[in-house]
Design a protein around this nucleic acid. Structure first.
Lengths: 140, 140
DNA sequence: ATTTTGTTGAATGAATATGTTTAACATGGC
DNA sequence: GCCATGTTAAACATATTCATTCAACAAAAT
C-alpha cells in the first residue's frame, strides 16, 4: 500500500503534491529538502516526477476529449507517407479547422511518432491521427 | 520498455486506448476479445483500467488547476513597495488572469491593507497576496 | 571566489500497475 | 431453459513507477 496517496484519486503522490505546491509558492529545493528531511536532488527528482505526471494527465484528458468530441483520421496500411498531410488537411478543411503544422512539419511529426509503423514511404500498420478544434494534431 | 505505450505521453496504454475506443463505438466485449485474441473478462478488466486512468487524469487536472488558479504570491521582506504591482501582474499573466485593479490602485490597496508591514517603500514582513480566477486580489 | 541553486545520470529496493487466465455469478433476450 | 452480455475476484508474471542516495556539473547570487 502507498499510505501517502490515499484513495488513488489522482496521479500525484502526496509527496509530489507537497513538493509541487511548495515550489509553486517559490520555496527553494534546499528549503523543501530540509523540511522533508531529504536532499535537494531528491526534491528535484520528485518535482520532475510531479510535473511529468501533470503533463501526462493533461495529455490524457486532451486525448480522451479528442476521441469523444473531435475528429479522428484513420490512415490505412498501404497509404503513401507523402499523402498523409493532404489527408489531414482535407479533413481539417471539412471541419473548418486550421492545422497548426505545415506539410513538412506534419511529415516529420508522423515519421517521429510512427517510425515502427512505416517502411520507407509505406504505411504498414493503421495510424490514427486526431485533430482537435484548436488544430492540434496528435497520434493515437 | 512498454512497447504498448509509445513515449509516455498519456496515462492510457495502447491496449487500454484500443479497448476504450472500440467500446465507445459500441463494440461488444466478445467482439473486442475476438479481435484482440483474448477473453471477455480480460477486455472488461482493460476497459475498467482505462476508465480508472481517465478519471484519475481528470481529477489530477482539476486538482492542479485549483492549486494554480487560486494563486498565492509571497512577497518577501526587502521588496520595494513599487515592485509589488509588477509581481502581481506577472503572476496573473502566467495564469492567464486579468487583474481587476490598476497599478496605482494596487499600490494604494497594499498600503492600506499592510501599513504595519511597510516602512516607507520597503516591505518589512512577508506579505501573501491571493489572486482568484476572476482577477480579484486579496491580502491573506 | 565561494556558496547557493537547480539539474542530471546511474543505481537500488519497495511498491504499483498491467495484462492475463480461470472460474464464478447476474441479467436480459429469445 | 439457453445464450449472449457484462462483471467480479483471485492469482500470477512481468513491467513500470517511486523515493532515495550519491556524485558530478552549470549557472546565478553573494
Amino acid at each position: 500500500m502507498n499510505m501517502f496517496n490515499m484513495a488513488d484519486k489522482t496521479f500525484l503522490t502526496k509527496r509530489q503534491l507537497e513538493v509541487f505546491v511548495r515550489r509553486e509558492r517559490g520555496e527553494t529545493l534546499a528549503e523543501i529538502a530540509r523540511a522533508l528531511g531529504t536532499t535537494r536532488s531528491n526534491v528535484c527528482a520528485i518535482e520532475r516526477a510531479a510535473r511529468k505526471n501533470i503533463e501526462r494527465a493533461y495529455r490524457t484528458v486532451r486525448l480522451v476529449e479528442s476521441l469523444l468530441y473531435e475528429s479522428v483520421i484513420i490512415i490505412s496500411p498501404g497509404t503513401d507517407l507523402y499523402d498523409i498531410p493532404g489527408l489531414i488537411y482535407r479533413r481539417a478543411d471539412e471541419l473548418g479547422i486550421k492545422v497548426r503544422m505545415s506539410g513538412p512539419m506534419l511529415l516529420r511529426f508522423i515519421v517521429e511518432q510512427c517510425a515502427e509503423r512505416l517502411r520507407n514511404r509505406e504505411v504498414l500498420r493503421e495510424i490514427s491521427v486526431a485533430i482537435d478544434s484548436d488544430g492540434n494534431v496528435s497520434i493515437l
